[in-house]
Write a protein that binds this DNA or RNA. Structure first.
Lengths: 214, 214
DNA sequence: ACGTGCGTGTTACTAGCGGTAACCCTAGTT
DNA sequence: AACTAGGGTTACCGCTAGTAACACGCACGT
């Protein structure tokens, strides 16, 4: 019952936990999201049951791992979003921050977007919805609150802000994913194009004559 | 060498293939993307090796299965996109078509968005990029061509159209996914909000006074 | 000094997966 | 009658996630 002792134990456990997470990180960075518990345990220099004692199951480990990276990325996104500049500049800088991150560490990115997904047991209920990567959801909600705080959207602003938050994040995600695969242009061009889209250039563009029909 | 015979065989094989795909469809609809080859074979009333003879591996089966649904969905999207109406109406109708589809059959939707992903062998190369669901990519490209065909975007229009295609599809996808999970509003409201976003209401909105800092 | 827990670690196992090799059996050809 | 060609099955491999059961070490109370 001595609290000192408990604290000692807990600190030790926490340190272990961090070591394990770093080992897992290395393996995921090397092997991608398919990294097996065996491989992670081996990298950490221990055996599987220890991993399971610390994280419960694979999902637990992956969640813990994802939280670290997600928190880090969200921090830099918040910084870009909070910079003292006009709206367009802030949007572009946020987009660029995100794209730079996924460009710099695509393995981590892939892991965050497709966490585990495997697991042949349980999941019978199937949980439709909420199957999207937690990172996307968190970014969407985060952006929604920022939008709702900063922008004057009239009635129904809360709902609107959330739709926009998730929508914009999804736009950024899909475009980034495609861009990362094909590299059809520079990061700066991509940022500009996306910002243009958000700035209504789609609606403002003129029709091309000679199209089919009307 | 008789062509008739060959045709007979091929027709028989095709029919079998369709039967297998329909069985697979039922299982996926019931068990989600985790559906095992064993379960699919059982549902079809046969055993695993036959599945493998027809589709090569799990990826092959899933690809064939996904292609059917993807083609169907893309057809209805094209119809909505090609309807004789003004741009805003067409955009809204396309969004609504997509959302109605994922709302009607969420299991299929989930399967299309997270195909397999498992597989403990191979994949060492890791294929960064192109890991996004093929459906998203195809929708993005499709939309890109429509945009490029219809809109007059000035220089660099091709690049711009592709970025927008993938971006808009991603927006639709993420918002739809979130909406499907939380159901925070009606489909019509969601469609309106997204169209508003595309129509530049984000850029047009006024700042909220009393915000932090500037 | 001596058990007695308790935390930490291991080995060895289960159940199920994707995938395949080997066999089997029936139909049609020569 | 003998032989081949497909469609089908059984039985297996190697791998995975996850767990039960056992073994060491170190602080404790008596």
């Amino acid at each position: 019952m001595d609290t000192t002792q408990r604290t000692d134990q807990q600190r030790s456990a926490d340190r272990r936990r961090r070591e394990l997470l770093e080992a897992a990180d290395r393996v995921v960075l090397r092997d991608g999201p398919q990294a097996s518990m065996n491989a992670i345990a081996a990298e950490a220099g221990i055996t599987k049951p220890i991993l399971y004692r610390h994280f419960g199951d694979k999902g637990g480990l992956y969640a813990a791992l994802a939280k670290r990276h997600t928190d880090a990325l969200l921090d830099s996104l918040r910084a870009a979003l909070d910079a003292p500049a006009d709206r367009r500049e802030r949007v572009e800088s946020t987009l660029d921050t995100y794209l730079a991150a996924i460009e710099a560490r695509p393995q981590v990115y892939r892991f965050l977007m497709h966490p585990a997904e495997g697991g042949q047991v349980g999941d019978q209920g199937f949980d439709v919805g909420k199957h999207s990567a937690p990172l996307l959801r968190r970014m969407g909600e985060e952006l929604a609150t920022v939008i709702e705080e900063r922008l004057d959207l009239g009635p129904g602003s809360q709902q609107l802000a959330r739709v926009w938050g998730h929508g914009i994040v999804g736009m950024m995600h899909a475009a980034g994913d495609w861009w990362l695969g094909e590299r059809p242009c520079s990061r700066a061009e991509l940022v500009r194009s996306l910002a243009d889209l958000l700035w209504g250039r789609l609606a403002a563009a003129g029709d091309k004559m000679g199209g089919p029909g009307f």
